[in-house]
C-alpha cells in the first residue's frame, strides 16, 4: 500500500513540475519524473510476496511458476521507457532550437502566436 502512495506522490511531483514551473528544462524533467512514476506503478502491480525474478535457472525449475513475479508489466515498461526516451530527445532538441530563436528558455516569454 505504501508503494502505491509513493507512486502517486511521485506522479504529483512530476505533474507539478510539468505544469507550474516556467523553465522549459524543468518542464522536461517533470515529464521524465511523471513517466517514470507510471513505470514504477506498472512494475509494482506484478509483485508477489516472496517472489523471485522471472528468469529460469537450474536451481529453481521446480517451483518457478509458483514463485516468480509477473513478467508482462516488465515487458510493457521496457517498451515505454524507450518511447519516453524518444519524446525527451525530441523535446530537448526543441528546447535547443527555442534558445536559438528566442534567446530565452522562459515559457512565459515564448508567446508569439495569438488567438
Amino acid at each position: 500500500m505504501f508503494v502505491y502512495i509513493t507512486v502517486m506522490l511521485l506522479a504529483l511531483v512530476g505533474i507539478y513540475a510539468l505544469l507550474l514551473k516556467e523553465n522549459l528544462i524543468k518542464k522536461i524533467i517533470g515529464l521524465a519524473i511523471f513517466s517514470n512514476s507510471i513505470h514504477l506503478f506498472l512494475i509494482s502491480l506484478g509483485y508477489r510476496k516472496g517472489g523471485i525474478a522471472a528468469i529460469m535457472q537450474k536451481a529453481n525449475v521446480g517451483y518457478f511458476s509458483l514463485a516468480a513475479v509477473d513478467p508482462l508489466p516488465q515487458a510493457m515498461v521496457l517498451t515505454s521507457i524507450v518511447i519516453n526516451l524518444s519524446v525527451t530527445a525530441v523535446a530537448l532538441s526543441l528546447a535547443i532550437h527555442t534558445y536559438r530563436k528566442f534567446g530565452t528558455l522562459d515559457s512565459k516569454k515564448i508567446r508569439g502566436l495569438n488567438g
Binding site: 502512495i5 502517486m8 508477489r48 510476496k49 511458476s65
Partner: peptide
Amino acid sequence: LFVSVLYLPGFGSFQNKDVANYYL
C-alpha cells in the same frame, strides 16, 4: 489518484494473473 489507491489489489497479492501464469 490517492482515492484510487484504496481500491487497488494489495501489494504482493497476486490476483487476476491468468495470462501471466500461462507465460510462466
